[in-house]
Every structure is written in structure tokens, then in C-alpha cells.
Amino acid sequence: MPIPQLTVFRHDMNNRALMTLTGEIDLETVHVVRESLAQCLRDGIRTIDVDLTTVTFCDVTGLNAFLHASSATAAACGSLRLHHPPPILARILALTGTSTLLLALPDGRSGRAADAPAHRIVPATTAPPVGAL
């Protein structure tokens, strides 16, 4: 059975970042999400778009990480928006009533770092395989 992993790719443009997550977000990998989002704020990023197109699973630990990061980003006068959440996360967002806090508007008014060319690419971060710690 393959070991679930999570990879984060980050593309920056001034004080904006597009983070693309690939894999599963759960108790074993959520620390990668938390650290990656916190690093954006430490680097002066104030607009964070998170593309979840290639996330295959996300549980409530992922939701909590996104809510915490959204709060921290708002406190720094910024915004964090999720794009294309997997069905399980979309369901959790709907059940918890947190969709309006995290999801990008359908018409894209939240702004998307993907539309602008990135002039700095931060190396990818990968969660270590389970049991490798």
C-alpha cells in the first residue's frame, strides 16, 4: 500500500502567493500545510490562494489548519482563499458553515496569483513518509 504524502508548490509575486497542494491532508501531513502557510506570512505574503485541485483527501485537521491560517492572514491585513477543494472538504466546509470564510468567489473577484507570472519559486515541501520520523 502506498504511503500518503503531501507536496506543496509555492509561486510568489510580490506580496501574493499561489500554493498548489498535491496529495492528502490529514493528521500525518497537516504540519506541512501549517508550516507552509505560516512561512508565507513570515515572508511578507498577504494574499494567499491555495489550489486544491490535486488534493485527493482532506479531513478536519486540514480545515482547522486553513481556518487558523485564514485568521492569522486576516490579522495581518491579508486574505487566504481556497480554490477547487476536493469533494470531502467541500462537504466539511458546507456542514461547518465555513465556506464563506475560505472559498474563493466563483467569479474570481478574490484575485488569483495564478494569473500573474511568478518571479520567485520556493522549493517544494514534502511530508516525510509515515514512520520515517
Rank of each mutant, 00 (worst) to 15 (best):
M1C: 10
P2T: 14
P2N: 12
I3E: 13
I3L: 14
P4S: 08
L6E: 06
T7W: 05
T7F: 09
R10I: 05
D12W: 07
M13S: 14
N15P: 00
A17H: 00
L18G: 05
L18Q: 10
M19I: 15
M19R: 04
M19Q: 11
T20M: 07
T20N: 00
T20I: 07
T22L: 12
T22C: 11
E24I: 01
I25F: 00
V30Y: 02
V30Q: 11
V30D: 02
V32S: 02
V32P: 01
V32H: 00
V33T: 09
R34I: 01
R34P: 03
S36W: 02
L37R: 04
L37K: 01
L37S: 02
C40K: 02
C40Q: 08
R42A: 14
R42T: 15
R42I: 07
R42E: 15
D43R: 15
I45K: 02
T47L: 15
I48F: 07
V50Y: 01
V50G: 00
L52T: 00
T54E: 15
C58S: 09
C58W: 08
C58T: 02
V60G: 10
G62Y: 08
N64H: 11
N64I: 00
A65W: 02
A65F: 00
F66I: 01
F66N: 01
L67A: 07
H68A: 15
A69I: 03
A69P: 03
S71H: 14
S71D: 15
A72Q: 14
T73F: 03
A74R: 15
A74W: 09
A76I: 05
A76R: 13
C77Q: 14
G78D: 05
L80K: 07
R81Q: 11
L82P: 08
H83C: 08
H84L: 08
P86M: 06
P87K: 04
P87Y: 04
I88P: 01
I88L: 14
L89T: 04
L89W: 03
A90K: 11
I92S: 03
L93M: 05
L93K: 03
L95M: 15
T98F: 04
S99W: 01
T100Y: 10
L101V: 14
L102S: 04
L103T: 10
A104L: 07
P106T: 03
D107S: 06
S110Y: 06
S110K: 06
G111H: 02
A113M: 09
A114L: 10
D115H: 13
P117L: 13
A118S: 15
H119N: 13
H119L: 11
H119Q: 11
H119R: 12
R120E: 10
I121H: 11
I121R: 12
P123K: 06
A124M: 09
T125V: 14
T126Y: 05
P128R: 08
P129W: 09
V130Q: 11
V130T: 12
A132N: 05
A132L: 13
L133G: 15
L133P: 11
L133Y: 11
L133E: 13
L133M: 09
